[in-house]
């Protein structure tokens, strides 16, 4: 019994030492090109490559976890993973609950897409993903907002005629518009303050490490290379 306790204690100690090095990154896995599941079922996309590179520079071991968008902030706060890297725009509302790094993409425009050019963007029915800056914007314009839990369902709603148009990040809509009968309508809307990684407010030390890694990637141009490769909007 005594030796059992000792082994457990030893295990707990060694575990404690290894801990600081593993960071669990939470993402949605349903928002190409930022993050999506590839054919093998692994997390892939701009943020996968970016996250892996940031972890290498910060000398951390990272692991990827997918989580529903709806509960992505509550699960960060309650400690199921350590950071969110999921195409999340930096907004004041979210800053009250979590802390962001500096943006790793410049503020990028949102856009409307619809099946025909003559839809009414301020009086019609507009689809957006729940709890996004785009959903807030629709409410501000006075149009009727219909919310969906995943980005894919917002597109399906327009195709099925449930909504007149969809609003989302332009980088997300672009490949979809190219590949289908959807077209862009209206002007682009600049929303949000760029996309950043989110951390618990008590995790300043880890956030500083990732912040430094982002800075170094901005300085040596590797971040711009990644942005261009995945076509996620403007470069720095």
């Amino acid at each position: 019994m005594k030796s059992l306790i000792l082994t457990t204690a030893a295990l707990a100690l060694t575990a404690g030492m290894g801990l600081a090095d593993t960071v669990r990154l939470g993402t949605e896995g349903a928002y190409p090109p930022y993050n999506f599941l590839n054919d093998n079922g692994e997390v892939d996309g701009f943020e996968r490559e970016l996250g892996d590179e940031l972890c290498k520079r910060a000398e951390l071991t990272c692991e990827w976890v997918t989580n529903d968008w709806d509960s992505i902030i509550p699960n960060l706060v309650s400690g199921n993973y350590d950071a969110i890297i999921a195409g999340m725009s930096i907004t004041e509302e979210r800053e009250e609950v979590v802390d962001f790094t500096q943006g790793y993409t410049p503020p990028s425009p949102s856009a409307y897409a619809a099946l025909s050019a003559d839809v009414d963007l301020t009086g019609g029915v507009i689809a957006a993903q729940t709890a996004t800056i785009q959903a807030n914007h629709v409410v501000d314009t006075g149009a009727t907002l219909v919310e969906y839990p995943t980005p894919d369902e917002t597109l399906a709603a327009v195709r099925a005629g449930e909504a007149d148009a969809v609003i989302a990040d332009k980088d997300y809509l672009e490949p979809e518009v190219e590949a289908s009968d959807l077209i862009f309508v209206g002007d682009d809307v600049p929303l949000g303050g760029g996309i950043g990684m989110a951390f618990r407010e008590s995790d300043d030390e880890m956030r500083a490490k990732f912040d430094a890694a982002i800075t170094s990637m901005k300085e040596d141009g590797s971040l711009n290379t990644l942005i261009e490769k995945w076509e996620v909007g403007g470069t720095w």
Partner: peptide
């Protein structure tokens, strides 16, 4: 957070464009 059959049916069934998969398909 446990990925069950309904989650996967939704994820796999959603429309996919050619940029991000070798198997593009509609909804």
């Amino acid at each position: 957070g446990v990925e069950d059959i309904v989650y996967w049916a939704k994820e796999l069934g959603g429309s996919k464009t050619a940029n991000f998969t070798a198997y593009p398909h509609p909804d």
